[in-house]
Simulated scan of single mutants.
Amino acid sequence: MASVFSHALVAYTIKKVANVSLNPIKLSLLAIFCAVIPDADVIMFQFGYSYEHPLGHRGFTHSILFAFLLAFLVRIIFYRKVKFFSKLGMTLCIVFFLATISHGLLDALTNGGKGVGFFIPFDDTRYFFPWRPILVSPIGAARFFSEWGLRVLQSEALFIGIPCGIVLVLRIFLKKKTT
């Protein structure tokens, strides 16, 4: 998996590009929540579920269906006064969906694990992208704060941080150009 820092950065970038004029802190925190919550599936190890099980790590919580359901749920709970089919309502759903699905997409770019179950519960196959440049992050804080964790952060800075930075700078440049 990519680290929580990279998942949060991608969610923040998605939120900034969406340019939604609502409470920016609330929206940022919700987008970041959507991007990091799929890894809560590691708790399933404690209940005896294997990595490969549809409810195991990188299983259902990394799927497209989960991203859709979570986006809908977060939008309904936290923005219930916004009309659902309004432009703002649809934009919020898209932001939360993209933030959530970005988690699995980043994980599919890592060099470790057993793939991502994008189509669970319809298909239990796990997938990786052909190009996997991101070093897989260790599970657990103790393992993360090590030489391995530092190498992970370096690869994420290169393959996630720089692209997000470029997108954010372009957004600022293009926003100034239109005003």
Rank of each mutant, 00 (worst) to 15 (best):
A35D: 04
I77D: 03
P133I: 08
F122G: 08
H62K: 15
I160M: 02
F145H: 05
G89D: 10
F118A: 03
V10L: 13
V42Q: 01
L135A: 09
V42F: 10
F78A: 01
A31F: 02
Y49A: 14
W148F: 10
T13V: 11
D123T: 06
Y12M: 05
R171P: 00
I162Q: 06
F118V: 13
D123C: 14
T61E: 07
F173H: 06
A157S: 05
G115R: 10
G115P: 10
K15Y: 14
F173Q: 11
S102P: 02
I77E: 04
T110P: 15
G48M: 08
D41W: 11
S146T: 10
A71V: 02
A31S: 14
K87M: 06
F97G: 04
L55R: 01
F122E: 06
L168Y: 00
V10G: 05
N111I: 09
T13C: 07
V116K: 02
S6N: 00
A67L: 03
F60D: 08
L27P: 05
A108C: 10
S146K: 02
F159S: 03
I162E: 03
S146F: 00
F85Q: 10
A99H: 13
W148N: 06
F96K: 01
A71H: 01
V42K: 10
F5C: 03
F119D: 09
W148I: 07
M44E: 04
V95T: 05
R171N: 12
E156K: 10
G117Q: 07
H7I: 00
A142G: 09
V20L: 08
K16G: 02
M44S: 15
L92E: 05
V4S: 11
Y127Q: 04
I37W: 11
K87G: 04
P121I: 11
Y12W: 12
G56F: 03
S155V: 01
F66L: 12
G140D: 15
F78E: 02
T61G: 06
G56T: 05
T91Q: 15
A99N: 14
V17C: 09
V36G: 02
I32K: 04
K81A: 08
E147Y: 13
D39M: 14
P130W: 13
A157R: 06
H7Y: 00
